[in-house]
Amino acid sequence: MNWVVNPFDEYAVEAALRMCEVVTGGKGKRFGEVVVLSIGPKKDATKEIRSCLAMGADRAIHVVAEDAALDSFVVANIVKKIYEEEQPDLLLMGKQTVDGDSNQAAQMVAGYLGLPQACFAATLESFPDKKELVVGREVDGGMEVKKVQLPAVVSVDLRVVAPTAVKNNQSEEGYEYGDGPRYASLKGIMKAKKKKIDVKELGDLGVSTDLRVKHTTFAPPPERGGGIIVKSVDELLDKLQNEAKVL
């Protein structure tokens, strides 16, 4: 299996970089530090951490743990512990992993830390005083605008990497990023090799590692019965009326 950075987490890295750089004349200059936290197996996660550093993150923390030792609760506890050590202004996370699909960790971390949360963020606006964040949240039927004081926990949705989704009110007016997360430049990749990755063993963190949810088995979903290809719209209409009886 080829390991990749969870897409939503890659978007969180991109959003963090956009928040922490002043773009003038098309050139970005960093004014804040972006720290990447990854929890995962030793070898596989290291490569993914380097790719986030190559995008432009400044340094990384790698908590070494096997997937089977993790559930949302353990992940939230680890993130909480690292948050307490690092004291960042903002904790950005992807809204869900695309394998576990749980969509829980950010909300849990916020609950444990007693911090405000803004989940499923599609737009982010920060201000030079770093006091608050205005977040556009994708909710059922539309977009909710929520304001949170920093520090806060934000989980990002797909649209946060749209060209003007992140504004920090310091970059030049009307600047548009490319659509999607940035590619690492060759220079970025070379630099990433020298950036610091602080490796910690899960057992040394002093957080609870008791699972609260256990996956017992995985099974493939039921197959759909084979369909047919119809030759014409008339045949389709006939099938919908007389066979499927949905028309």
């Binding site: 849990m108 916020a110 609950g111 989940c119 059922d140 949810v213």
Partner: peptide, 23 residues
Amino acid sequence: ATNLGKDLLPRAAALLEAGMVSD
């Protein structure tokens, strides 16, 4: 599992020190 449910329940799970299953 509406947007509101997905936003709310994990935070409540943290407060209740409870395990949670999504979807």
